[in-house]
């Protein structure tokens, strides 16, 4: 995987983490059932995707540095 591709994956992961944090902020400030449901069924899967992208980018980086 090329470096620009790795950077792109990281940027997407960061953007998803920001969305996750905003959803968490709403639940923490105004814990209404709708906000919590959205956080559970949308926010957490988005964070899971961010984590997967992070792991993929990290593994690609390690391979590029020939550590793996």
């Amino acid at each position: 995987m090329t470096e620009p591709r790795r950077l792109h994956l990281l940027r997407v992961a960061i953007a998803l983490a920001v969305v996750f944090n905003v959803m968490a902020l709403i639940v923490l400030i105004r814990p209404k059932p709708i906000a919590f449901t959205v956080f559970m069924f949308l926010g957490q899967p988005l964070f899971a995707v961010a984590l997967i992208l992070l792991v993929v980018a990290a593994l690609a980086e390690l391979r590029a540095r020939q550590i793996l």
């Binding site: 960061i14 996750f20 944090n21 814990p31 919590f36 984590l51 990290a58």
Partner: peptide
């Protein structure tokens, strides 16, 4: 820092928010 910002801290945030949301619901 990327691992902390995208991986570690959001995990803690998720745990805190889940606990607070569950209690509040």
């Amino acid at each position: 820092w990327v691992l902390v910002a995208v991986g570690l801290v959001p995990l803690l945030v998720g745990f805190m928010t889940f606990a607070h949301g569950l209690e509040s619901s």
